[in-house]
Amino acid sequence: MTAYEKNETQDDNERRGPVVAEHTLEARDVRLGYGDREIVPGLSVTVPPGRITVIVGPNACGKSTLLRAMARLLAPSAGAVLLNGRSIQEMPTKEVAAVLGILPQSPTAPEGITVSDLVGRGRYPHQGFFRRWSAEDDEAVAQALLSTDVLELADRPVDELSGGQRQRVWIAMALAQRTDILLLDEPTTFLDASHQLDVLDLLTDLNRERGVTMVAVLHDLNLACRYADHMIAMKDGRILAEGRPADIVTEELVGEVFGMRCSVIEDPASATPMVVPLGRHHVKGPAA
């Protein structure tokens, strides 16, 4: 299959936003696991600042585990995650929270909380015991509501919203935290196709306009190819390939990572790689 060509170099510069992110995030030789079960047996990765990085891989490949470690939710048994060169586990957690925000997979909102109150909770790291709610907090919340397009829902209880609206509200909460780095664990799970696009467009807007460094775990390979500046493909706790989707996504890689036959063609909309899976049925003619 040679249909796909690397014709993206010029376009690629255009899609990268202004790089204002000054913070660096990397994992150095981290070993990760839960109890005795080791999931990531030593791995190093550097997150490109100001870019959208997408981690893909089959279930249980360690991609969420890696994301949790980078968010300091999981302490590595060896190695370290470095934020601006300092071990994230040794930094005061509020200091980390001023730089790095996270959105876990399917978070649950307290019952009856309104949208604006939930988004307001993103201001927690900016409040101390003696420093209470301020005009700056109000402004951050209003802007987060505005840029995620949920301002008109501000007074509605989160329980009553649709899945797509709710996910935008959670992203608004993460935005209200005003961090330069945002880690998202499957932000499009449980959303229908159009809302998946909405969320990824929103993340791209934030990346381009504010230079927020994003790291997201995604399940949909084709959306990952389309939206990622930098892609990390993982299997069995190891990184098999990383780089621009156009550079790394091949039939061989998809076969190796997902154990799935496919052909890779050019996405007619975005000119990024598009993975067409080939199962045992519904494939015309002899398999490619």
Binding site: E95, I102, P104, T108, Y124, F129
Partner: peptide, 23 residues
């Protein structure tokens, strides 16, 4: 009575509470 903000953060789940900088 002083635990209000902490309980607010905790009510979002341990992961988010940690992510928001809570010990």
């Amino acid at each position: 009575l002083a635990l209000g903000p902490q309980l607010n953060a905790l009510s979002l789940g341990d992961d988010l509470a940690r992510g928001l900088g809570q010990r």
